[in-house]
Nucleic acid binder design. Sequence first.
DNA 1: ATGAAAGCGCTAACAT
DNA 2: ATGTTAGCGCTTTCAT
Lengths: 346, 346
Amino acid sequence: MKRGIKAPAGRVTMRTIADEAGVTLTTVSRILNHHGDNYAEPTKQKIFRIAERLKYRPNALVRGMQTGKTRTAGVMIPAGKVFYSQLLAGIQEELAENDTIMLLSWNHRTLNQADETLERQIIHQMVDRRVEGILLRPSSEEFDRPYFEEIQERKIPLILVDRQLSRLETDFVGTDDHRGGRQAAEYLVSCGHRRMLFVGNSHLVSSSRLREAGFREVLSESPHASCDSIALAEDSFADQVRQQLQQADPPTAIFCYNDPTARAVAAIVRQAGLSIPHDLSLLGFGNLPAADGSLALTSFDQHPHQLGVAAAKVYFERISSGYPNGYHRVLIPADLVERGSVRAIG
Amino acid sequence: MKRGIKAPAGRVTMRTIADEAGVTLTTVSRILNHHGDNYAEPTKQKIFRIAERLKYRPNALVRGMQTGKTRTAGVMIPAGKVFYSQLLAGIQEELAENDTIMLLSWNHRTLNQADETLERQIIHQMVDRRVEGILLRPSSEEFDRPYFEEIQERKIPLILVDRQLSRLETDFVGTDDHRGGRQAAEYLVSCGHRRMLFVGNSHLVSSSRLREAGFREVLSESPHASCDSIALAEDSFADQVRQQLQQADPPTAIFCYNDPTARAVAAIVRQAGLSIPHDLSLLGFGNLPAADGSLALTSFDQHPHQLGVAAAKVYFERISSGYPNGYHRVLIPADLVERGSVRAIG
DNA sequence: ATGAAAGCGCTAACAT
DNA sequence: ATGTTAGCGCTTTCAT
């Protein structure tokens, strides 16, 4: 004749405490949640003592279900790479500060169309667990992907990190890429370079596009400066680089939108028998550590940890209904780190 | 006269679907959870269609509360460092494979006594959210810390990663440190070295102790081989290294229990006017990328990603009541990576 | 200063 | 092939 679900015996709930203390569930709930200002001091003491003795732990699932406040953030970042793991460290630090813990998942770093299902699944895992908001580094400019709509329809705050989506209005925290591009150009020009090459992924990634735009902006204002572009994603990439080098009037400096790209280019350049920085200057972006003994690359530090902290701050501001109108944007400047892959000429 | 808590209007629950379909909650629950084998095909279709149209998403909190199956793992790893972020990547990959998501938190890398409160808090955050198990890299050999008891009292499966706790019986996944130490010694001996120095943290960290033990084991079997030790944690560390170098019969090779230590030693060695590997061979452990242009260090790759995958596999085996008796241990061998900081002599 | 009752969204035991 | 009911562990409203 028994029905329903039986609770495993020996489990300590508020019920247990209430019975033991001879009070109601309500009383226990109010006191343990520090809403018990009206209760008699002895009652409070008693409840706290029993709770401690029994090692009571609240069920955050139930609480979250009822109140909506899960104190859980969804974070979707491919944190296997150094840059992202430091970004994650920043996020983690700020979340912990605010007694919030993250549900972490990973999207792929690749700009792979087929991963749509995966990312959708991840979003669902988070939504189903009632995260209060989501911090997300998009794997590409997939503005049209339906899972973003899902987040927005459910009115879950979404904070984009590192990369923007061109057609999506959201809070954003990232590097000031446009400015970074400008700094790159200013630096190379100040080193005497005029014929430049930009290597990036501007059709796929906002950071590349913005860095290129800033870069070109400065060059267009610099007398005699010129700049070609090569897109990294293309098959003929290596060939295109070689072609550039074999021109009558080859570039004297190459600006790559990130460090891995710069290292790839460096390999091609060296294969072609040129030495860096003597024959050619190379400038990266991101300031990532690389394998031992590889090229000491002049680059820009993006301060990933700081980015993470800033992102989490925006998160809390947003979920506590800060920013009443419009979206919030934070741009962190990148800083030049000279390491010797750029040479002053002429 | 109304009491209780009102559900925000417009929320889609199983109730909504049941009403719309003219069936019971039970029916919806069973069908959506794929326990609906007995239901009529049209009924099933109808429920699925309505659920989809209404974009229904189950409340995982409620489900978890009732069933205990939260499909959530607690992970406590200071993933800001490369090694740990790759370890984390492995864990993440295997968890995702099994439709599980992680609640991630961070303990400090430092062997700091004062962080006890923090780590306790983290454990509570996880326990309260009813994780099914916990994967944890201990910040030191804090076997006596009470929060481990808390985990064990609640019978939450605990899988230790990378570092063991000397007095705690638990599942463990890590590098085969003893064997790694042996490999290090065998390699150096095969290069002709006899007078060695070990630099580590053996009183604090199991990995250091085991590597040292393995190292010494081989040396004790090698004719004419000898080995001194220096403890990294001591203030006079740099002085001790210098003393070693200035001896009448100084070591020809130094084995450091990890790469950062090796780099610290390298700096001291160079300051002393000696060159690596010409005057002195240096061997690290961990194979971590370092800043551009720094010493190309011969080291051992610990395959952190593989460690992560293995750890998560143990996790699933454990939470599905595998390993009925006793604890499970997985040791992954490390592999030598030659990079030129060790020279063959004599 | 405390309690009773209703409700959250769901699962599962016991029906027919 | 479907429904009824009890229950999970809490929070909150209303009442005394």
